[in-house]
Design a protein around this nucleic acid. Sequence first.
DNA 1: GAATTAATTGAACGTTCGTTTTATTATGTC
DNA 2: GACATAATAAAACGAACGTTCAATTAATTC
Lengths: 215, 215
Amino acid sequence: MARTTGSDGEKTEAAVREAAVSLIARLGYEAMSMRQLAAEVGVQAAALYRYFPTKEDLLFTLMREHMEGLLKAWGAARPASADPVTRLAAYVENHIAFHIERRHATHVSNMELRSLSHERLTQILKMRTAYEKELRTILRDGAEAGVFQIDDTGLTAMALIQMMTGVIVWFRPGERLSIAEVTASYLSMTMRLVGATISHGTARPSGRARDAVAL
Amino acid sequence: MARTTGSDGEKTEAAVREAAVSLIARLGYEAMSMRQLAAEVGVQAAALYRYFPTKEDLLFTLMREHMEGLLKAWGAARPASADPVTRLAAYVENHIAFHIERRHATHVSNMELRSLSHERLTQILKMRTAYEKELRTILRDGAEAGVFQIDDTGLTAMALIQMMTGVIVWFRPGERLSIAEVTASYLSMTMRLVGATISHGTARPSGRARDAVAL
DNA sequence: GAATTAATTGAACGTTCGTTTTATTATGTC
DNA sequence: GACATAATAAAACGAACGTTCAATTAATTC
């Protein structure tokens, strides 16, 4: 009835995070109890409080690290090129790859915002806005350069992000489509949606998706 | 401490539904307590059980009627024409109008599915699938007729629905854009995304959104 | 106006919740 | 091997949860 043999704080904390993401994604934050989470980790509920002072702290930590990871991933994937088409393609590819890889965490970050305190909600939304702004900038640059035909930059950015993030709702790894096929299709749909004028000669304006993507 | 003057079952039930949609949309189903809901209606918690036997029954009723309303609305808006472009335009317009008008109910129907029992979840998903199938059929017909350039009908249908439904996340009535402007933009983006060949001479293939929509 | 039905209250039920406290044991250090 | 520290268990806290029940009053019916 105390410390167990082989117990290790770092490993336990990592196990708690992993189990929490999976449980919250499946049951929802409010519906998941600390006792359930503890049972999943193989520990008593009280032990969780060694790592996270409250349930909401746990949620916030998961969300903050998810958003930081997204911004960091885009920072690494962002191309040096100034060409809007290249930048948009990189954004789409990074977004889809990241979100498919972290389906559960994305679910949590998108669905459980209302369980955060006002202050913490603001923090998360700030990161999200920064990420979305990157896309708006690309779209605006492309529109000004005349390579995109866009009605409303803000509206188009939101539509694209909703469309891309929606992948996690229906995509299941190992089913009909591979990640590469899904990414190729979404890239093609994106380019068509923004009315991209193909500048690399790799695709025709009204060509099939495969053409527009196979670069 | 009993029946109150002027009390009326029908009015109370309607008030409960309305308050429930709004509260669940704002707080989430699990986070909303029956006492909170009762207070919003101006009644004691026990009174709710005269209208809905359990909390989950209440949720299910709201969702089922929302989905029935969506299918009914599409049934009324579905054009007689066989032209895929006309049908797709009607689908987009109906979808956006319906979802903007019922933002809160849509939020509930999309976010709280995991709180339903397996059997009831199946019922709701059946209706949702039937609604989505209508779009897939339009896309397939258009692709076969050669007026749409589509890679994967199922994937495109999901992408379009996610994109359109996403409107409720950011759209707020009375702000920058009107419902008509939003609908016009989404219609334009949709037609471009599916690579629609304009058959009415109302827009150029690579034209601005306004051109493609102003019919 | 008496009897019946509809609508609601107030109190209580047992359960579960997030969290705290205290005790206990394993591990690392000298 | 003594001692400090890290990691957990076990038990308990008050509060809140969904729900039930009996009592009570308003509206309706005859």
